[in-house]
């Protein structure tokens, strides 16, 4: 029997068993279709968009390919005029662009802050035990389930200057003495957008926070209660620190979403200077003006900003790079 043994330790060193290689092979074929698909719908278009941003492409050039390489001119270029003054051109020298950047950031900042605090409040309510909790949870899922466009239209109707029910309510209570054109006026349009976004997205936030709350062991509250610690103190010393990771991830998720806002503002408001965002400006440049060079430069800048936040998410969310389960 021992004659069949050809003990050669060198041969087996470092080689995978056929189970491992079978699985590795399978993994490759399982991943390949998805990766090919993602390459075609994500990586390649992104690459092309970035390429466009370095050309003077216009809508027609998409079909004819007659665009020229212009380097960073779409981002920033300058020309010294005869009188010696410098004329700046490009997205980075465009006041409209910076206005859109501030609008986007202001919107993201305000909406996420409001949604976090209100989401926390709703989550705390849902975390308490009371009769009808299931119904309340079902009710708050409704705004989340309504398509953004539909909620923009519903609120557009409610915020209508002449016939809107919001103006009617405020008039009845006496907060205002004449109807407000919420979505059209420069000083209220952003408020209207925030209102709708907060209404629609707070449920999502609340559910994520609720999941985080429910991961906190109940006995921690019970022992705090036995020790006679004031609930406020428990909230700041126990609940909030334990909730922080879930909260951070939820916040960054929402920030990323808010930074690319397009549909709500596009439908709810006339997209004036008061509410125009990076996505809308870029869309307008691409679709309405057909300037693929500058439009792509704008969208690339938005991509870079969001990429920055994704990195932040990875860092704060401590996503495990090894792909193993994190505890």
């Amino acid at each position: 029997m021992t004659t069949t043994i050809s003990a050669n330790p060198e041969r087996s060193r470092g080689r995978e068993t056929s189970l491992q290689s079978q699985r590795a092979r399978a993994a490759f074929w399982f991943l390949a279709p998805m990766l090919v698909m993602l390459f075609f719908v994500a990586a390649w278009p992104l690459f092309r968009s970035i390429m466009f941003s370095f050309t003077d492409a216009e809508a027609n050039d998409i079909f004819t390919g007659g665009s020229e390489w212009v380097g960073f001119d779409n981002y920033l270029s300058w020309r010294v005029r005869d009188d010696g003054s410098i004329r700046w051109r490009g997205v980075l020298a465009d006041a409209d662009w910076w206005n859109a950047v501030w609008n986007t950031i202001r919107f993201a900042f305000m909406s996420v802050a409001l949604e976090t605090v209100l989401g926390l409040l709703v989550a705390l309510v849902l975390n308490a035990e009371f009769k009808g909790r299931g119904l309340v949870r079902a009710a708050i899922l409704i705004p989340w389930a309504i398509p953004t466009i539909v909620s923009a239209r519903m609120w557009g109707w409610m915020l209508n200057d002449q016939f809107g029910i919001i103006n009617d309510m405020l008039l009845t209570v006496g907060f205002i003495d004449s109807p407000i054109a919420w979505t059209a006026r420069a000083d209220t349009a952003m408020i209207a957008v925030l209102m709708v976004d907060v209404w629609k997205t707070t449920p999502f936030m609340a559910l994520l926070i609720l999941a985080g709350l429910q991961m906190i062991p109940r006995d921690m509250y019970e022992s705090a209660k036995i020790d006679g610690i004031h609930p406020m103190k428990v909230f700041f010393r126990v609940t909030l620190p334990l909730l922080k990771p879930a909260l951070m991830v939820a916040v960054i998720f929402r920030v990323l979403d808010a930074l690319r806002i397009f549909d709500l503002i596009y439908v709810l408001t006339p997209q004036s200077e008061a509410t125009v965002t990076m996505s809308i400006l870029s869309y307008r440049e691409l679709q309405q003006f057909g300037d693929y060079g500058e439009g792509s430069a704008q969208s690339t800048l938005l991509f870079l900003i969001i990429a920055l936040f994704v990195l932040l998410y990875i860092w704060l969310g401590r996503v495990d790079l090894s792909g193993e389960r994190s505890k």
Binding site: I5, A7, P9, S12, R13, G14, E16, T17, L19, Q20
Partner: peptide, 10 residues
Amino acid sequence: SGLESITTGD
């Protein structure tokens, strides 16, 4: 069992 691979040896 073969569920894990042997690094060296037989």
